[in-house]
């Protein structure tokens, strides 16, 4: 999206490389962007509008079909936590031991694999081996 300096309006500089992803629509704080379906297969007269609210953690959609028979209001959560607060700052975590560095574990593992005391899977623990050829 660019701003037209004369009209002072935002516009899509390359519609034929647009994914219709609505990221620009969701990001505009003034709800100034609207979308109509692509001319080559979408007849005029429909609308799909959206409002996304990080504070409230929800997104609201309204879909209106061309013939007016479909008119849906749909609401969905976008997060269950206050925005961004629940993500750890790994700089401040207790750092890994040498043993952990030499192991196959990632941050928070093995705990987070099963959320219990279960360990990481290995070929040995699963009774498997890698064999070359056609075997299955």
């Amino acid at each position: 999206m660019h701003i037209d300096p004369t009209l002072r309006r935002a516009y899509n500089i390359e519609p034929n490389m647009c994914w219709e992803c609505y990221s620009c629509v969701k990001a505009c704080p003034m709800d100034a962007i609207d979308v109509r379906g692509y001319a080559d297969f979408a007849p005029l007269g429909h609308s799909v509008r959206v409002q996304r609210d990080e504070e409230k953690g929800v997104i609201a959609w309204r879909i209106k079909s061309r013939n007016g028979e479909t008119d849906l209001n749909l609401l969905a959560p976008i997060t269950t936590k206050p925005w961004g607060k629940a993500i750890p700052q790994l700089k401040d975590e207790a750092g890994p031991t040498q043993e952990e560095r030499d192991s196959q574990l990632l941050f928070n593992e093995p705990k987070y694999i099963r959320m219990d005391d279960g360990d990481i899977h290995t070929l040995e623990s699963a009774g498997l081996k890698m064999k070359s050829g056609v075997y299955y």
Binding site: G37, F41, P43, V48, V50, I63, E69, L74
Partner: peptide
């Protein structure tokens, strides 16, 4: 409802298309 949410959550253009072509 799940069918529509499914589009809105990952391929909005499909919802636009159905709205434009009156697919119910």
């Amino acid at each position: 409802e799940i069918g529509w949410h499914n589009f809105l959550g990952m391929t909005v253009g499909q919802a636009v298309l159905w709205a434009a072509t009156d697919v119910n």
